[in-house]
Design a binder for these strands. Structure first.
Lengths: 145, 145
DNA sequence: CCGTCTGAATAGGAAAAACCTAGTCAGGTG
DNA sequence: CACCTGACTAGGTTTTTCCTATTCAGACGG
């Protein structure tokens, strides 16, 4: 990892690498087996193997041995709490791309998050420390220097 | 780009590549000149050049020619509105890393966002469609299959 | 002018990562 | 016991990165 002291660097150590984010996205979408992920993404098997190992080591997904009747035991990869919450960041990235990098043929989409009890859709939005939602247009970067 | 139809893929086309996210982070932190970015990040100059070009083409930063007195004209790179909003996603990634990938020696940190008028700190947080903030623990992924 | 300095790159070759294809290996089925 | 499926691992090629040196433009000093 480049620089531990910055959380962005620690996050990008995972997402800022080819395939890793897409692998997580598809695990969250329910593609949990090696062959499904490989087919869905079109990634080389050695690379997929490496990425799943990295995500597993980071605690973002976990490797679960299981068996379906009539099949031998094999692993599947499921998102942990940490992975689910990182998926929310991916969803925010998705919202950003829809707004600032739209594509004409754009179709909806990837991950849907909901509030458990009510089933209401949920997105990441800017909120101040008192818990009030802030309009996008008022959010600015604080310049530090 | 791998697959246009998914916003996550469009976002990761930028962030899911070595250095690109870190370059944006540092531009947002106020490192705007080539040599400053190179020194700060320790990245090879040809790679930095490539990443700045990519971010510029994507409209996330823009290349501005300017001159300081006593210097010849040279470019600086400043974040656009799009880049500032993408930085908010980086800040969410930072929050995720602080929670799920902490580091013992961890020090605070990188990007600070505020509400323009009041100067109040702002973060991305889960919000439902009615604009109510949702507790993290209640957010779950909707399984689609 | 002319040599020197700064800063933004570009260039060339070595090293690392990704790609592609084929092969291994475990455990089920016919 | 031959054969099948599925999760990898292995070998060789292509693509990226990395590292270092070089170019190139425009001050600035003498």
């Amino acid at each position: 990892m480049a620089d531990d002291s910055c959380g962005i660097a620690r996050g990008l150590d995972l997402l800022g690498e080819r395939w890793t984010g897409l692998v997580l996205r598809d695990v969250l979408r329910g593609f949990e087996r090696f062959s499904d992920l490989q087919r869905e993404l079109g990634v080389a098997p050695d690379v997929l193997s490496d990425r799943l190992a990295k995500l597993t080591r980071a605690g973002v997904v976990s490797k679960v041995e299981y068996r379906e009747p009539g099949h031998r035991p094999r692993p599947k990869y499921v998102a942990t709490e940490s992975g689910i919450r990182l998926g929310l960041v991916l969803a925010a990235l998705n919202d950003w791309a829809d707004e600032f990098r739209p594509v004409p043929t754009g179709r909806p989409n990837a991950l849907r998050y909901v509030e458990g009890p009510t089933g209401q859709a949920v997105h990441l939005a800017p909120v101040d420390d008192a818990g009030r939602v802030v309009d996008d247009a008022r959010v600015e970067l604080q310049v530090l220097r």
